[in-house]
């Protein structure tokens, strides 16, 4: 039976901000990560908890001014069922569907996936590839953090201790394509060995622009593979480019051996799934 630290359940955002400002407290939304952490076996038990479940401001999924707005408490199930997500960001729907199984998807939230900042967080490469912006807030006010600047180190983020994740904003540029692929440990309830998102805008004869290659489980944080992006930027998905991109990616990544996979596998498979995504995009 895990520890039962005291918990506050504010109904309003300013109350939550006050509690956060008052000192060490750990937010909990769906609890799928936090409830596992409070056994004390996997690290220190939080002194105090902050229940986000009554903050209605953090809910909802909507489309506004060309951007998809996801409340921090949007669950994976809500994302999977959301018609705007399905229409405008199907890769995120795909990612949400690979997380846990029904029980986890019904509880886990996109804000939690970000805050937990696991290198294996399955939605995170999609958000990186989509140039998402994270709206955070606290007593000091609100600010926007591009997701590319959010992950600082292993499970460390740019979120200050007195701030909450409020919303994820995903710009939806016209003509952008976004693909997702997860290689997990099994077919459900799986943590990824490699997870990848690839985004681009096709300018026809001018090739691809704004190419994003984002990966999870291959570094201490979710990352973008910038050298590989550079190979693809301005190019098209030809066999030669795909070969070069795959080789560049394999050279660029520094994955590790761990309980789930090996460095060698992660490097090779990252290259191969990128190659496959490019092959599919090129139609060859």
């Amino acid at each position: 039976m895990p520890a039962e630290p005291p918990i506050d359940s504010p109904r309003r955002l300013f109350e939550a901000y006050e509690l956060l400002a008052a000192g060490s407290t750990r937010p909990i939304a769906g609890g799928t990560d936090v409830m596992v952490a409070i056994t004390g076996e996997l690290g220190p038990i939080p002194e105090r908890m902050l229940d986000l479940s009554r903050l209605e401001e953090l809910r909802g999924i909507s489309l506004e001014q060309g951007a998809l707005l996801l409340g921090a408490r949007a669950t994976y199930t809500e994302i999977r069922r959301s018609t705007v997500c399905r229409e405008h960001l199907p890769a995120l729907v795909e990612a949400a569907a690979t997380i846990g199984a029904a029980q986890i998807q019904n509880r886990g939230t996109i804000g939690g996936n970000l805050a937990n900042a696991s290198p294996a967080g399955d939605t995170l490469p999609v958000l990186l590839a989509a140039d998402a912006v994270i709206l955070v807030g606290g007593q000091r006010g609100e600010r926007e953090i591009p997701v590319a600047d959010f992950f600082l180190d292993y499970r460390k983020t740019a979120l200050a201790p007195d701030e909450l994740i409020l919303q994820v904003q995903v710009p939806l540029p016209r003509g952008r394509s976004l693909r997702f692929r997860k290689v997990g440990t099994r077919r459900a309830q799986a943590i990824s060995k490699v997870v990848m998102a690839l985004a681009w805008q096709d300018l026809g004869s001018a090739g691809w622009k704004d190419v994003r290659v984002a990966l999870g489980s291959v570094a201490a944080t979710p990352i973008r593979a910038r050298a590989t992006e550079a190979v693809l930027e301005g190019a098209g998905p030809t066999p030669e480019v795909a070969d070069r991109a795959a080789e560049t990616l394999a050279g660029e990544l520094q994955p590790i051996d761990d309980v789930r996979s090996t460095a060698e596998y992660r490097r090779a498979v990252s290259a191969r799934i990128l190659h496959r995504l490019l092959r599919d995009a090129g139609g060859w």
Partner: peptide, 23 residues
């Protein structure tokens, strides 16, 4: 089960995997 100095690394249900209904 992978071992490190005689200790199981896959010592939780998140790391010791058995097949789900989909597997």
């Amino acid at each position: 089960i992978k071992l490190q100095e005689g200790r199981y690394l896959n010592d939780r249900l998140a790391t010791y995997l058995i097949p789900t209904a989909l597997d």
